[in-house]
Design a protein around this nucleic acid. Structure first.
Lengths: 120, 120
DNA sequence: ATTATATTTCGTAGTTTTGCGAAATGATAA
DNA sequence: TTATCATTTCGCAAAACTACGAAATATAAT
């Protein structure tokens, strides 16, 4: 009889990142920001995307809350750009999950994926 | 004035795959099946995972519906394994999104990511 | 045929997500 | 101060997600 344990933090983190990417508008924003090492403004996005201002703001909030983007006040606008550290983390986490060669981020060496939490 | 267009199918596909991976139980199953080129049974999973039979069945159904796993009847059990073709597609789609080197899948050459649908 | 086993589907309930317009915030310009 | 602009927060409603137990299905064993 196998024991029921809690799912690992690794698994939960993947699920959390995936959750953020589970809406096309958020994928669009992430892709745009990662592509050109660029930045964007809510006002521009609302013109480009099929979504209203308040809904867009919610998506930005979620991305912010997940630590994937950050806003910087710039006169009457807010300039959003990628949080490179966490973006790199997301990439690494997915690379490991997808069994590809791990991305070299900082000095971490962990490349295995834990499926269950172990008490220690 | 920039025109509002529908978000691209590429974006929607990424969001869809991400949606499937947005629950740790589903991530667990996918990881398990992809790891050893292995298979699994609902009955074993329900012993390993902190979720009831019916909830587990729902997760399997979602994975099946997304085309990522497939079940094969084997006497009183159902043996689940990865749908390798779609798993490869998922990997490719994410690799492109994450700007990594594209994975060589079949003979497709498209490696760019479309952000908007274009009428043609 | 009856019983037992493996799994799914159904019905239900609580939670979360999503999107909108209206109102609020905050900062600049007149 | 008042007006204006960019953005967010609030309140709400519709839809989707998650989980559970009970019932249903399907197959094997007796």
């Amino acid at each position: 009889m196998v024991k029921k344990v809690e799912l690992s933090d690794d698994l939960k983190e993947i699920a959390k990142f995936a959750r953020v990417m589970s809406h096309p508008v958020r994928v669009y924003i992430l892709k745009k920001l990662s592509q050109l090492n660029s930045c964007c403004y809510s006002g521009d996005l609302v013109d480009e995307l099929p979504v209203g201002r308040s809904a867009l703001s919610q998506h930005l909030k979620e991305l912010k809350h997940a630590g994937l983007i950050q806003g910087e006040i710039e006169a009457p606008f807010i300039k959003y750009c990628l949080n490179k550290e966490n973006w790199a983390k997301l990439k690494k986490v997915f690379a490991v999950f997808l069994d590809d060669a791990p991305i070299d981020v900082s000095s971490e060496k962990k490349i295995s994926l834990k499926l269950m939490n172990t008490k220690e």
